[in-house]
Nucleic acid binder design. Sequence first.
DNA 1: CGTGCATTTGAGAAGAATCAATGCCCGTGG
DNA 2: CCACGGGCATTGATTCTTCTCAAATGCACG
Lengths: 254, 254
Amino acid sequence: MLRDSGKSPGSFEPLHRFKEYVSFTPSEVKEIQALGDKPIVLPRSSVIREQEVIPTCFFILLDGWASSSVEFENGDRQITKVHLPGDLMGAPSASLAQTADSLTALTRVVVSRIPLERFGQLFATRPRFAAAMFLSAQRERVALIDALTRVGRTSSAEKLASLMLDLYERLSAAGCAQELQFELPLTQQEIGDILGISTVHVSRSFKEIEDLGLLKRAGRKIKILDLRSASVFARWSHRPAASKFDWLIDHDVS
Amino acid sequence: MLRDSGKSPGSFEPLHRFKEYVSFTPSEVKEIQALGDKPIVLPRSSVIREQEVIPTCFFILLDGWASSSVEFENGDRQITKVHLPGDLMGAPSASLAQTADSLTALTRVVVSRIPLERFGQLFATRPRFAAAMFLSAQRERVALIDALTRVGRTSSAEKLASLMLDLYERLSAAGCAQELQFELPLTQQEIGDILGISTVHVSRSFKEIEDLGLLKRAGRKIKILDLRSASVFARWSHRPAASKFDWLIDHDVS
DNA sequence: CGTGCATTTGAGAAGAATCAATGCCCGTGG
DNA sequence: CCACGGGCATTGATTCTTCTCAAATGCACG
């Protein structure tokens, strides 16, 4: 069920996030593809899953962008993750009695629902799948650590530059960006909710890093002009995955 | 090897974090206790494990407080987690080629080293252990989501109140706090590095929430005076764990 | 009874929020 | 085809929060 939605270029592979840590056999790949229900198309701004409800499933984002956010009564919210094509969504709240965050479509999205039971069945019967899910949960913790470090940082311009680099790298990995260019479908309101700053200041910070010659905007297109100095300015670290996981997989199950 | 260090009151159980999601058989408990090496005692400020080194192990914190932090050349740092007794430390970086964060002793600590191989062996041979580790990684993601939401929030006083509530709840769960009181061994510098604010402002924010009647300080002792209004003020949410994980554990491994 | 570290307090500067007005793009309907 | 409206982005002016720098106080420990 989890096939390419047909809209993306050939390089996109909806399961790329699953294969980051473990390479699967063809039959395992087939089982992973069978995890999700029939893909659903939702328009921008749809609530995919609310916060404070009982968790019953995960979602795979097959196309488009989505957000995880924690929302307050007064309308404030913190976006805790921008999900890109291939991402598994909704897993953190599976540990809780009630979901902690809302999943919202930032663009038109194609998502596939994964019932917890089906996930659990694969987790229990396929140790390599369990290992991959454990490692990708740890990788998501690192992503949150970096998000927290970004937001705790003093200057807004740094925060914004760091976000742009993060998105560029993740889009590249998903096959949705190349040559330092990508399309950014976020409003400045949404960017503000990611970085914890006001919309007005997002606009000013964009101008600031543009004036510094770090990147250029043209409509919704972003072009990073100088990756090296942008990384230094944003104090941004690339975080390559470990290359070997012998310690976790392919143990003798005696 | 992972026994009570002898210093804590009888209620403390160094494996309480492992048992949050799955109840283990006595023989499984024995295997989990055998995970760690002989406990080591380290003084305050010791670096337990540096950032930007190759990950080779996890750690269990048996006694004392420790921090995970991301550090920059100029001395700035973001503390991304305060570890309390019972916590498993260092797991996020296991997915990376180089560790993302440093582990530092905030007080005198007792830690036990868990080589990755020994962890992986148990993960592969004990599906219930693998499930517990997957769920606790997801729970840690929620903790980071809450930390990010806290730091992204506008007012410093709110951030501080939220941190105090978080620590109180976690200390209670570890059996290290009761009756709305606990001992806080953090300097205001460290609190500032958790919340992304300056030391001076930590002092002022403490005064502010004290003047509001939310809590009282006496030396390093903190007493929460009004849990209800403190929670409202800090917009803090208790996050109870789900009660059933049938979907993940005890599947037929045919 | 110093000495060093942490905290508190004050004053001024910088950064970001808020409020408000304007401009721009795009789709809709007259 | 053009006028209109809505959503989003930009810019200016002002206010508020927080930072920085500096000094003073308090506190623990030898």
